[in-house]
């Protein structure tokens, strides 16, 4: 085992900000034994099939953060064209459009925005995206059911 490295100032500052000045509808709590690993919750935005749900995510800051984007994944099952069965998220700012100037806070806001505005043209979960395009009312209904079943607080 290598000796634990001091946490970079950037991560310390971001963590402080997340705890003292949280974003409405979002929580992010670092693990005591691994300060790069966060338990995250995002509440489903109003006027969406995810309304009323509390979605759990895990977030990890890799060694090279912020040169590398955070790794982030849904733990709660969710019916969404840009989120697959394993909870992986298709979001440009987590990949090509990542910039070190972005922060955990901005990324979590983007994810909340993705719940409000799914993009079935750039899908990760192909079957869900197909349903979303072919029979949107039914897709919304399923998303609502899943929210009730898996994401109830």
């Amino acid at each position: 085992m290598s000796a634990p490295q001091a946490l970079p100032k950037r991560i310390v500052k971001e963590t402080q900000m997340l705890l003292t000045d949280p974003v409405p509808g979002i929580t992010a709590q670092p693990h005591d034994d691994n300060l790069r690993y966060f338990d995250v919750t995002v509440s489903g935005p109003a006027m969406t099939p995810y309304e009323g749900g509390i979605f759990k995510l895990e977030l990890f800051l890799p060694q090279d953060y912020p040169m590398e984007p955070p790794r982030i994944r849904f733990l709660t099952k969710i019916y969404h064209p840009n989120i697959d069965r394993l909870g992986r998220i298709c979001l440009d700012v987590l990949k090509d459009h990542w910039s070190p100037a972005l922060q955990i806070r901005t990324i979590l806001l983007s994810i909340q925005a993705l719940l409000a505005a799914p993009n079935p043209d750039d899908p990760l979960a192909n079957d869900v995206a197909a349903e979303w395009k072919e029979n949107q009312p039914k897709a919304l209904e399923t998303a609502k059911e899943w929210t009730k079943q898996y994401a109830s607080p």
């Binding site: 090279d64 040169m67 090509d96 459009h97 990542w98 910039s99 070190p100 100037a101 972005l102 922060q103 901005t106």
Partner: peptide
């Protein structure tokens, strides 16, 4: 450091401004 890493990964299209997100 940022641009050096962009160079080694060969990604010269997303060398974004670091000053503002």
């Amino acid at each position: 450091r940022y641009l050096g890493e962009k160079l080694s990964s060969g990604d010269l299209l997303s060398t974004r401004c670091l000053g503002q997100h």
